[in-house]
Amino acid sequence: MSPRHGPGGRPQPRSGQASDLTHVVVAFDDNRLASELFGQFDQNLATIEKLLGVDVVARGNQVTIRGGAEACAQARLALDLLYVRLTQGHPIGTGDVEGAIRMAEDAESQLALPSLEPKGRLAMAQIATRRRTVMARNPAQDAYIRAMDRAELVFGIGPAGTGKTYLAVAYAAALIERGDVARLILSRPAVEAGERLGFLPGDMKEKVDPYLRPLYDALYDMLPAERVERGLSSGMIEVAPLAFMRGRTLANAVVILDEAQNTTSMQMKMFLTRLGEGSKMIVTGDPTQVDLPPGQVSGLAEAIDLLGDVEGIVQIRFADTDVVRHPLVARIVRAYDAATPAPSAVRRHGGRP
C-alpha cells in the first residue's frame, strides 16, 4: 500500500518542532480484521491522518504512524479501540472511526479511559441486548454507560443526536433480559410546545402515544417485537406519561425519564422521589430546548444544579462534538448554541459514583 499524507503534505507535529517527531509500529493478529480496520482504499487510516495530523502507512497487517508523540499515541489508541470492536464482531464505519479518535483524545480523563482487554488492548463500554450490541462511540457515551452501571441515578444532559435516550433504553433492555430488574418503565412529559392532551383526539393511549414514540422506537430496536408486545401486555414494560408516576413507589425497576427539560420543578421532584429499592433511574434531556411557558423554571435545570454533589448521583454532560447522527446535526447544534445564552454549567463527567 502506498503511503498517504494529511492535508498540506506530510503532517507536522503539534508542537511544530522536528525533535518531537516519532514513529510507532502497530501489528494486528488477524489479517482479515486488519484489512477491515484500515477500510476500503485505507479510508479509515486517511480519517485518522486528517483528524490527528499524523502520517499513517499500512503494509500487510502492520501500521506505521509518524508524527508528534502525543498524536501518534492517540492514533494508536484509536486503532486499538477499533480493532477490539472488530474482534467482537461489530463492523466499523466513519462515525465509529471519528468516535474512537475522540475517545483517544480524551483518554487522559479517568472516566473516559476505556478498560483493558485480556490481551492489553483497550475496549469501549458496550451494552448487549438480544437484537444487537451497542458500543460507545465517544468518551461521553463511554462515561454514560459506565455511570449507568455504577450509579442509582444518572442524568444524561446534552443536545439532540448524542445517543442519550437510545443508550438509556438499550441499557434498560439489557437489565430486563438479564433479570436484574423486574420492570422497565419509560416516561416523558406529555405536554410539549404548548399542546395539551385534552385537545388531541382519541382515548388516553392514543393521546400520549405520539409523545412516547421515540421510546417505543428504541425499545423495538433492542428487543424482538414479540418480546416487547408480551412485556407491554403483562406490565413488565410500561410506557407512560410523567403524570402517571404520581403516588407510586417504583421498586426493582429501571426507570427512564426522557425529555426531562420539559418537566416543572414539582414534576421533577415528584419523579425522583419515586425511586424504590433495587431500582435505577436515568434522566435525559437538553436544557437548551425547553418548551415550558415563558418564565417557568425547568425541573431538569433545577435538579442538575441542586443535586450535583449528592452521593449516588452521576451527571454526564454531552456536547455538540458528541453528536453521532449526520455530521450536519453537530454543525446545526453549534450554530444554535452560538446564538443563545449558555445554560447553567454542568460538569461533563461530574457527580459522585
Rank of each mutant, 00 (worst) to 15 (best):
G67R: 06
R131S: 15
A125R: 03
A125S: 15
V56Q: 05
Q62C: 11
V154M: 02
Y144Q: 01
R150H: 04
A73C: 02
R131C: 12
A143R: 09
A58I: 08
E105L: 04
T94A: 14
R66D: 14
T133C: 07
A173W: 06
P139Q: 02
A71G: 02
V54K: 01
M103V: 12
F155G: 07
S109A: 13
V57F: 12
M124W: 00
L77D: 06
M135D: 02
M124R: 11
V57L: 01
A125M: 05
K164M: 11
F155C: 06
P159S: 01
I101V: 11
V169R: 04
Q126T: 08
T133F: 01
V54P: 14
T129M: 08
R132H: 02
A136H: 11
V84H: 09
R130D: 13
L111C: 05
I145R: 06
A100R: 07
E108Y: 13
M103W: 01
A69C: 04
R76Y: 00
Q74F: 00
S109P: 05
C72G: 03
R76N: 01
V56P: 02
R85I: 11
A170Y: 09
A58L: 01
D106W: 02
D106V: 07
P139D: 01
M135P: 00
E70C: 02
T162N: 10
L82K: 07
L81I: 14
V56R: 06
D142M: 03
L122D: 00
P118I: 09
M135Y: 06
V84K: 02
G99E: 08
T64P: 05
I157L: 13
A100Q: 04
G158R: 03
A78K: 11
Q126A: 15
R146E: 14
G89P: 06
R66Q: 13
V154N: 03
R102C: 04
R66G: 01
M124G: 13
D80H: 10
A69K: 08
Y166E: 10
V97N: 14
L77K: 08
A69S: 14
V63P: 07
Y144V: 07
I101C: 12
T165E: 08
E105Q: 15
E117Q: 13
A104S: 12
P139A: 13
A147R: 02
A123C: 05
G93F: 10
K164G: 03
S115L: 14
H90N: 11
L116R: 14
G120K: 08
A71S: 15
D106H: 09
V57P: 00
K164W: 07
A107H: 09
P91Y: 07
E152S: 13
R132P: 01
A170T: 08
V54Y: 00
A75K: 00
G163E: 13
I101Y: 03
A173M: 14
H90R: 15
A173H: 12
R85W: 07
A128V: 15
T165S: 14
M103Y: 12
Y144S: 06
